[in-house]
């Protein structure tokens, strides 16, 4: 067993009276490439935000590297790309792509006292936007923006990366490139949690699956998930996932 990076214990989250997350408990270990899957409205994004202390759960605790997330300080060790991140950028945003990526250093300047100029070029080259680094961020296409967000999340050399449907709207080949690159980082030791609907990807890159729809229905390695779930069928029928007992 690897080192536990995240431990979620008996987590409940409610919006008003509506239960979004109910008694969720699981662990993420070092080196996991976990796909967090489930139907729309199933609570995946809420769970990610609870882990990152962006939402306060009604009950339960979350530990990051053994420390409760409410008192956790080393957030620079976690890269995060939120859902539809690129929607926030418009043509007036007064930042070059390089400045945008370097924002990570400025935000966490209390922890990081250097700026890694070499890594930005390496990552930009890997993700195919090196020639765009001096361009205005608002002039990038949606796909290029998503790459910029991913580089921004990786520029601090995080130990854990959380991606909330990062590649929605991208064509098949772009997604293939992204996931191959993520797999490279994973091989080098990066732990990744990926919220996704792209179930076709599961067998190729990820090592573990967590299936969530208010409750945690499955958490384990992807082979056993494939055997048990016939996951493609499940995703075509939201009703069914609510009634399957693993």
């Amino acid at each position: 067993m690897g080192q536990t990076i995240i431990e979620v214990k008996n987590l409940y989250f409610l919006y008003g009276n509506q239960i979004i997350l109910e008694d969720i408990s699981f662990k993420i270990e070092k080196g996991d490439f976990l796909a967090l899957i489930g139907p729309n409205g199933g609570g995946k994004t809420t769970l990610i935000k609870c882990i990152l202390n962006l939402l306060k759960p009604n009950k339960g605790k979350i530990f990051i590297w053994g420390e409760e997330n409410r008192s956790f300080k080393n957030w620079h060790k976690i890269g995060y790309v939120p859902q539809r991140a690129g929607d926030l950028i418009d043509h007036l945003t007064p930042l070059t792509v390089k400045d945008f990526i370097f924002l990570s250093f400025k935000i966490y300047k209390d922890f990081i006292n250097f700026t890694n100029y070499k890594l930005i070029n390496e990552l930009a080259e890997k993700f195919g936007i090196k020639t765009l680094l001096n361009k205005k961020i608002g002039e990038l296409s949606y796909g290029q923006l998503q790459r910029a967000y991913l580089i921004k999340a990786l520029i601090l050399n995080p130990e854990l990366l959380l991606l909330d449907e990062p590649f929605v709207g991208l064509d098949f080949f772009s997604q293939e490139v992204f996931y191959n690159t993520l797999a490279e980082f994973h091989k080098k030791g990066l732990t990744i949690i990926l919220v996704t609907h792209e179930t076709w990807l599961l067998t190729k890159w990820i090592t573990k699956v967590a299936c969530i729809n208010q409750k945690l229905y499955f958490h384990g390695d992807h082979e056993s998930f494939c055997v048990q779930a016939k996951y493609l069928e499940i995703f075509q029928d939201r009703h069914r996932i609510e009634h399957i007992h693993w």
Binding site: K49, L95, K106, Y108
Partner: peptide
């Protein structure tokens, strides 16, 4: 940095 990052990111962990 905290003023500008709110333009590009709605939420930043730990900030």
């Amino acid at each position: 940095p905290l003023w500008i990052v709110q333009i590009t990111d709605k939420e930043v962990p730990g900030i």
